[in-house]
Design a protein around this nucleic acid. Structure first.
Lengths: 241, 241
DNA sequence: TTCTTCCAACGAACGCTGTTCGTTACGAAC
DNA sequence: GTTCGTAACGAACAGCGTTCGTTGGAAGAA
């Protein structure tokens, strides 16, 4: 605020030099810009050109700081994972803590809608993924599970959470493509179309779908996620010694 | 075999007409070619140009039979779903039948490796999807579940199966990109790298991961899928009246 | 038979993508 | 004061999905 940076340098001063020093790019700034674009315009809008545009330059400038687009996506994903808050482990409350953890990851992924589409594709390797893994793995082991089963359960919980968030992000992208802004309006329109389609099916071949259309479209994404999570937790509980 | 089609027509016969009649394209043939390409070269190799090439023509020719690439992908997915074999419903054996169904879908999706990447993205609307839905939904209802819960359970089973197959297909694509052919060799290499990475972590921050590296990489995709499926089935069973 | 209509086929082009190459010019080190 | 490493970047490449406008053969009408 104290400097004169905001005042544009007159073109006649110091003769011709439109960019005195522009060494401003670095990986963090690029990831910032990338996440900003994903949040506001969606993952489909994220291209190397679009990110470069944010710095008034061409796509080639990014490759000094980021190996390729895939690495940029993983860096963005890792940054988002950093928003997860992990509590102190309490093995006696493992079920509550595992539920809360799953919902927290789901919440963070859903908050940055399209990022979930990266989550499934990338191998968890960043610091934040490992921290989350240590939390869940340790929790299950300390609760009495064998390391082998704890590994499998952690893996399945992770797949379920990211898979559901991924599916949700596809709907989000579809909503965006349809020009809508309100998720509830999208859901109602989508469910309505699906219901009409189901109702138009021949009764003799699809009696149950025909008869219970309303039940088939009753629950939205959040309730479905919760239900499946409870199924998994019940399954894990049954195996807990 | 009986005709003279294999002998090229001499250019001087009937003057100039290199293509007497070429009205040979139709949707089924296009889907055939598409699935063939996905199976042999992978989903990433599937482009409208590549499909058109199969008919010695340009991409524009396809758009008379297929709305766009997305529709082509859904048609391919629907065709693959047609390979699912459904038994007679027997509600008294609902758990066995549900397990067999899930494994059958998983098997079919895995057989056409990359198709799973379409499965998650597309809304189930074709005849084969609906038939599969009626089977599972009816099975759960006849076994005594409320329509509402049967709907949720069906949805979660579907998400789990396709989500796992999707994750598997990503590994498959990665294997392909690495120039490997044997899934077992890929798994061992991948697991080995992951193990090295885990072992290199600081012990004090990640004690459990550090200590049980072998358990973390013990199971391959098939076993993980089975384990998660049993978790879900146990969860459903606990809710079955 | 002759004429008209229709539409699958398709060549060419548009605008977009991720990535690479070769050049430039600045900051720092010698 | 010169050299050197390297971030920045303009230009280009090969590929993508899709659209437009034309063409020519098949089918229906007269």
């Amino acid at each position: 605020m104290a400097g004169s940076e905001d005042v544009p340098t007159p073109p006649w001063r110091k003769s011709r030099k439109p960019t005195p020093l522009k060494r401003q790019l670095n990986q963090d700034l690029i990831v910032d810009a990338g996440l900003r674009i994903v949040d506001t315009e969606g993952l489909d809008a994220l291209s190397m050109r679009r990110v470069a545009q944010e710095f008034d330059t061409g796509p080639a400038s990014l490759y000094a700081h980021v190996a390729n687009k895939e690495e940029l996506l993983e860096l963005i994903y890792e940054r988002v994972l950093g928003e997860i808050e992990l509590p102190e482990r309490d093995p006696s409350r493992w079920k509550d803590q595992l539920r809360a953890y799953a919902m927290e990851v789901h919440r963070v992924l859903t908050a940055h809608a399209d990022v979930a589409r990266v989550a499934l594709a990338s191998v968890p390797s960043g610091e934040n993924s490992i921290l989350a893994g240590e939390f869940v793995f340790g929790l299950l082991i300390e609760a009495g599970m064998s390391p082998r089963e704890a590994s499998l359960s952690m893996d399945r919980i992770h797949l379920y959470v990211t898979g559901d968030a991924y599916e949700g992000s596809l709907h989000y992208a579809r909503m965006r493509a349809a020009g809508l802004d309100d998720p509830r309006e999208y859901f109602e329109r989508f469910a309505g179309q699906l219901a009409d389609y189901y109702r138009a099916l021949p009764t003799e071949r699809f009696p149950h779908i025909q008869k219970f259309v309303d039940d088939l479209i009753a629950d939205d994404g959040e309730e479905r996620f919760r239900y499946g999570l409870e199924l998994l937790l019940a399954g894990i509980e049954a195996r807990m010694p």
